[in-house]
Amino acid sequence: MSNPQTRNPHRAPHAEDRPSLRHETGPLSPDPHQIRPRIDTRHNPHAPRHAAPASAPDAPGTAAGSRTLFTLRDILLWCVLPVLIVLGLRLFVFGLYVIPSGSMENTIMPGDRVITTHLSPRPIALRRGDIVVFKDPANWLANEGASHNSDRLIKRLIGLPGDTVECAGGGASIVINGVPIDESAYLKPGVEPSRSAFSVTVPAGRLFVLGDNRANSADSRAHTNDGAQGLVPVDDVEGVAFVCYWPFNRMGWLSAHHDVFRDVPTRAPTG
């Protein structure tokens, strides 16, 4: 009788007799040199749960610790450029003025601070009703009792080059090119358009101006004998006031009231 445990050299071995190919050559076989111990953090509160990410190098211009790096480009962009923009706007676009007298009450009060645009008279043309700031043409401020040292005046533009501006006086309306205008929208309450009579034709390059407080305004009416008939050279206009920014309780837009002059015809200047 044959022994069942006796191996037959001619019999193919069973699967259990063969060495495991998966164990020897399988793709999932672990490399003993790559095996790392697993850290159990369930019972070790001091063990790190996640690996700290590698720190990236500091980008230029960002904080490195407690030190901030600024390049020349950053300085030009954030420091020099804003200053140049503000200076450019101040010199070429906007002007700041303190009102020296009460000639424009109640539209503007003495001591008010206003902003003007330098875009008028060029490239934006002047219009009747504009509140213009101009150089004192013939010592007008001496007759207005100015409370601030200044060589600039502020008035409302009434007559453009070519206009004939006249008034019969005694509370009569101002007439421009034959059309009477209603100035109640901006005249100081209780003040007449003009107590004195006058008639002026504005030549080329000149302007006829009046204050809103006609009872206390040494304007074009009061200087008809100054050699220029009280007219302001267009080139002496520095801007048109459009907003009062101080004091805070008087802050607001300054209206030109262009609608008051909408029916006045335009005349070409002569001379």
Rank of each mutant, 00 (worst) to 15 (best):
F70K: 13
R18T: 03
L89H: 04
E16A: 12
D130K: 07
D58W: 05
R152M: 15
G95D: 07
L77T: 08
E144Y: 03
D58V: 12
D136I: 06
H46W: 06
N44Q: 01
R49S: 04
F70L: 15
A138P: 06
D136E: 11
A15Q: 10
R67H: 13
F134C: 10
T107M: 02
S101H: 00
P53I: 03
G129K: 10
D136M: 09
S120Y: 06
A51E: 12
G129V: 07
A138H: 05
E24C: 00
A54G: 02
A125E: 05
L91T: 10
N44H: 06
D130T: 06
G129W: 10
H118D: 13
L81K: 08
L153I: 05
P53M: 00
V93E: 03
G26D: 13
T116G: 13
G26P: 07
T117V: 03
P100F: 09
P48F: 07
A125M: 05
R36G: 00
R122F: 08
W140K: 03
I131G: 04
N44A: 07
K135N: 14
P45M: 06
L28M: 09
N139S: 10
A138S: 08
T107F: 03
R73H: 01
R122G: 04
A59Q: 15
V86G: 02
M104N: 15
E105C: 00
V98Y: 00
D17S: 13
R73E: 05
